[in-house]
């Protein structure tokens, strides 16, 4: 039916237009966004946990953790994205360069160029296309995890300090060691204090996903710009004027639905977690007879 679009009109034209190969790639890019979220969220949480643990620790180490939190929060996140994409890439290549080409005697920075030996290039220039794409995506994931790890560290650090002091003292009275208290008392109890901050962080993470575009990944923003632009009959069977506005409206609606669903799910989760807790929320539930 879609072989000759010029004869089509109305809804059938729209149907054929929305199922072209490029549009299917556009829909696939929504999958990229979800994949990014699925990998980044646990990774950022792990980074945050490490950061918060270090920030609680002994003095010289805790400065490192607090510095990490303070710097990432004091500087625009998008600056970090642009920075880490180049910096991580150069760091990987530099490490590989030292390992693979030990007898290379020229400097790495030559004027305005960053030069490593061919064997150290990442990905190798001989690799297939999908390796290049996967590498770009991997660097993007790591960048997201580093930046949002700092936000998560901030939330978890606050949550660890919010666990009632009496709980820790009781554990000490029972003769538990520091590591045992951390593992058995502090960590299980901190989540209910961390959840409001973490839910907020999840929303922020969702809303940061379009920044993938800046990291050079072919994501939904890339496709919306590509597909929405003016198309003339010479180059496509589906000519149309500048529709980028409508494509971005569609993205806007997608994000609205996504954040709304997340909000509802997180509210339910909070209701579950506060059940039976010695917090204001838990007390309210108890009084209501829930």
């Amino acid at each position: 039916m879609c072989t000759d679009p010029e004869t089509l009109s109305g809804l059938s034209w729209l149907f054929c237009y929305l199922t072209t190969g490029k549009h299917l790639a556009f829909y696939g890019a929504f999958g990229t966004v979800l994949l990014l979220l699925a990998i980044t969220a646990p990774l950022a949480l792990a980074f945050g946990f490490a950061g918060a643990t270090v920030a609680r620790g002994p003095a010289p180490l805790s400065w490192l953790g607090k510095g990490y939190i303070a710097i990432v929060r004091g500087v625009p996140d998008i600056a970090f994205f642009l920075f880490f994409v180049i910096a991580l890439d150069q760091m990987f290549e530099y490490v590989r360069h030292r390992a693979k080409c030990p007898d290379w005697d020229q400097p790495i920075y030559q004027g305005n160029d960053f030069v490593v030996c061919a064997a150290a290039k990442l990905p190798l220039s001989t690799s297939p296309q999908w390796v290049h794409e996967a590498y770009g995506f991997g660097v993007a994931v790591l960048t997201f995890a580093i930046v949002f790890g700092a936000f998560a560290a901030n939330v978890l650090y606050g949550a660890m300090r919010a666990v009632p002091r009496a709980q820790i003292e009781t554990a000490e009275a029972y003769g538990l060691t520091g590591a045992q208290i951390f593992r058995r008392i502090l960590v299980p109890q901190m989540w209910v204090y961390a959840l409001p901050g973490l839910s907020n962080l999840w929303m922020v993470l969702i809303k940061a996903t379009p920044l993938l575009f800046l990291l050079g990944v072919e994501d939904i923003v890339y496709w919306a710009r590509e597909l929405g632009g003016t198309k003339t009959p010479q180059f496509t069977k589906y000519p149309h004027p500048d529709w980028r506005m409508w494509y971005f409206l569609a993205l806007l609606v997608f994000y609205l639905i996504f954040t709304r669903i997340s909000e509802i799910v997180l509210e339910r989760l909070m209701l579950r977690l506060t059940h039976g807790q010695a917090t204001m929320g838990g007390e309210r539930q108890r009084r209501a007879g829930g």
Binding site: L211, F213, D242, R244, F248, L252, L256
Partner: peptide, 22 residues
């Protein structure tokens, strides 16, 4: 409040720019 807070600023910029353009 729902529309502005529920969507990314990045997309809002793009949408507004292309809306002004048309």
């Amino acid at each position: 409040v729902f529309v502005v807070r529920g969507s990314p600023l990045f997309i809002q910029f793009f949408f507004a720019y292309f809306a002004f353009l048309s």
